[in-house]
């Protein structure tokens, strides 16, 4: 009778041991990855803290020492730069370039990808191969002839010229990404729509475009970040523009002020704010875009 009442002594404690062992086993990995994560954060945090410190402090002590004394942080750098640095104008120029370049790429690429996936025409496969090839053509390849061309057209040194350049070099990847996504839309859907009486435009507008939204979002974020962060094209075509975009603005400051870190760090951080906001807000789409573009 007592034998029945007595519980097996080991049984209940076994899972607890297993649990503990699992924790012990995963500890080194956790510690390692925490360290890596901190390491990855350090550079950005360094810039952020530096941008909130008086220039004199920068030479006196490391930014990490300021974290212990938050009282020494000040928004003075930001106040100064917003009043004198032309950052406001630069921000406007950057927006004026980035927004149209993003919208145009999204529009043109989704149209082109539709033609590549859902229309049947001779040479279609070759056009796709050409696009894949164009995807890796360096930006530099077209600088000089396009500068000449823009000179004739009066586009040199203008925002539309830069926008057009970004659209052109964004398109191959954009069409590639949209094509991959559209290829996953069942052909049946389009055929059903065709039988339902839709013409090509309606099929694009009512079926493909709504279904392609996630991919369009990925593409838009990608293109937005590329254009926003571009230095080369802006420097080549807008170097002498009265209100150059953010990247060029900071580039000029770097060569102009040399080591005045308060200005450089503050301007750099201002240029990063919007991309970082976009990144954190739409990270899911960004990752999806990376994967769609990289892994076929």
């Amino acid at each position: 009778m007592t034998a029945i009442a007595a519980p097996a002594p080991e049984a209940p404690s076994a899972p607890r041991w297993a649990h503990l062992r699992r924790i012990l086993k995963s500890t080194p990995v956790n510690v390692l990855l925490v360290a890596v994560g901190l390491l990855w954060l350090v550079p950005t945090v360094g810039l952020l803290v530096t941008s909130f410190r008086p220039a004199a402090d920068y030479f006196a002590s490391g930014w990490w020492q300021a974290i212990a004394h938050p009282a020494v942080l000040t928004v003075e750098n930001y106040r100064n730069i917003l009043h004198t640095g032309g950052i406001g104008d630069a921000l406007i120029t950057t927006v004026l370039i980035t927004v149209p370049a993003t919208l145009l790429v999204v529009l043109i690429a989704s149209l082109g990808a539709y033609a590549l996936v859902f229309l049947r025409w001779p040479g279609r496969d070759w056009v796709f191969v050409l696009l894949v090839a164009l995807m890796v053509v360096p930006l530099q390849m077209a600088l000089i002839p396009v500068a000449t061309l823009y000179g004739h057209l009066g586009l040199y040194g203008t925002i539309p010229g830069v926008v057009l350049y970004h659209v052109a070099f964004g398109l191959p990847f954009a069409i590639f990404l949209m094509r991959n996504f559209y290829s996953g839309i069942p052909k049946d859907l389009l055929e059903a729509a065709r039988i339902d009486g839709a013409n090509e435009w309606m099929m694009f507008r009512r079926i493909v475009l709504p279904l392609g939204m996630p991919a369009l979002a990925s593409l838009a974020i990608f293109q937005f970040l590329w254009v926003w962060n571009d230095l080369l094209v802006a420097l080549s075509f807008l170097g002498a523009y009265p209100h150059p975009p953010l990247t060029v603005n900071i580039f000029n400051k770097l060569s102009e002020f040399g080591t005045s870190i308060d200005v450089i760090s503050t301007a750099s951080f201002i240029s990063m704010i919007i991309p970082l906001v976009v990144f954190f807000a739409f990270q899911r789409y960004f990752v999806r875009g990376v994967l769609a573009g990289a892994v076929k």
């Binding site: 950005t44 360094g46 970040l225 926003w228 990247t247 900071i250 240029s271 990063m272 990752v287």
Partner: peptide, 14 residues
Amino acid sequence: FMPMAISLFATGVI
């Protein structure tokens, strides 16, 4: 993954 959002130029400054 975050540094992917930062421009290469700003990365240089950082």
